[in-house]
Amino acid sequence: MPSRRAVLAALPAIAVIRPAGATPETMQAAIREFLGRDRPIQKGRVTMDIPPLVENGNTVPLSVVVESPMTPADHVRRIAVFTSRNPLPSVIVAELGPRAGAARFATRIRLATTQHIMALAEMNDGSVWSDTAEIVVTLAACVES
């Protein structure tokens, strides 16, 4: 039978079994995977609309708008959203084309804690544009059952 001291010493190891959350590094890795290779990310053209302070991280309204004429010659190909401190960095990857008519979408997301999120838009010419937002979450998603 293990001594109480041995059991107590093992407790931190048990805590580690829980899935590790995303870090800014894993967010960067997810962004690299989304882009396929390292590509310059420019600020602008993307506007993310999300409340700066949310009480409940289980349903946070998010909308992303990209300035683009959405013609066959000039349109947005993909829009992706990443979080820095959720259990997984990726949130959504949307694919659009000229038939969408406008480069915008809205959805509802989960946020595990106070963090910053990033939206990336990939144009058909290969350029990548971004917007970031900081969100304070008072009640996190996924903590209680």
Binding site: P87, I92, E95, R108, I109
Partner: peptide, 9 residues
């Protein structure tokens, strides 16, 4: 079209 991850409500 969209690929959804667990962070979608």
């Amino acid at each position: 079209s969209a690929t959804l991850h667990p962070a979608i409500a």
